[in-house]
């Protein structure tokens, strides 16, 4: 019976049901903490709203202008160095939480984006230009420059490794 029910509910709904169940347990154990977590959720939603709108616009633009041929040419199997550069630069420039970018990446992957370039994009999100002054403040100039250099290099290494291990 439960198995049949689970088959009908897709993974995304099972995920939110499990998380809601955690909230239920927490509310039972400590109602104040559960309330705090709910308030935190709403605050987080408010914070990520601009990024959500940006991703929605990008998703619309990619659906409108990018067909599979173009995607394969820019970030697919034929992309070469151009694809790496595009992934690194867009990864560095992207803002907002990492999970907000999954829908767009998932859509692009379905249409031909390479796993290695998705990995490079996600890894380069560690290089946050607006936050660099804060990193310099806490850890110094040389640390920030050296770390940024290695992060970009390792985004390529990780991309190649993930691609080799998953395909």
């Amino acid at each position: 019976m439960i198995n049949r029910l689970l088959e009908k509910i897709s993974g995304k709904w099972i995920f939110i049901i499990i998380v809601s169940f955690f909230y239920g347990i927490l509310a039972f154990a400590n109602l104040t903490s559960a309330k705090m977590a709910i308030i935190q959720s709403f605050q987080l939603m408010e914070k990520i709203l601009p990024t959500f709108l940006l991703i929605s616009i990008l998703l619309f633009i990619s659906n409108l202008f990018l067909d599979s041929k173009k995607i394969i040419n820019y970030i697919g199997k034929n992309s070469g160095i151009k694809g790496w550069l595009l992934s690194i630069i867009t990864g560095v420039l992207s803002s907002g939480p990492i999970y907000m970018w999954y829908p767009l990446l998932s859509d692009l992957k379905e249409r031909g984006m390479k796993d290695s370039l998705i990995t490079a994009f996600l890894y380069n999100r560690a290089v946050k230009i607006p936050l660099l002054p804060m990193m310099i403040y806490y850890f110094g100039w040389s640390f920030t420059l050296v770390l940024t250099f290695y992060m970009i290099v390792f985004s390529i290494i990780n991309g190649i490794l993930v691609s080799k291990l998953t395909n």
Partner: peptide, 23 residues
């Protein structure tokens, strides 16, 4: 259609992160 498909997942992640931050 894409956005509606990912909405429950996004909501789940936001709730999970908030739970973690609170605890």
């Amino acid at each position: 259609k894409n956005l509606f498909q990912i909405l429950p997942i996004m909501l789940g992640v936001i709730m999970l992160i908030s739970l973690f931050i609170s605890l």
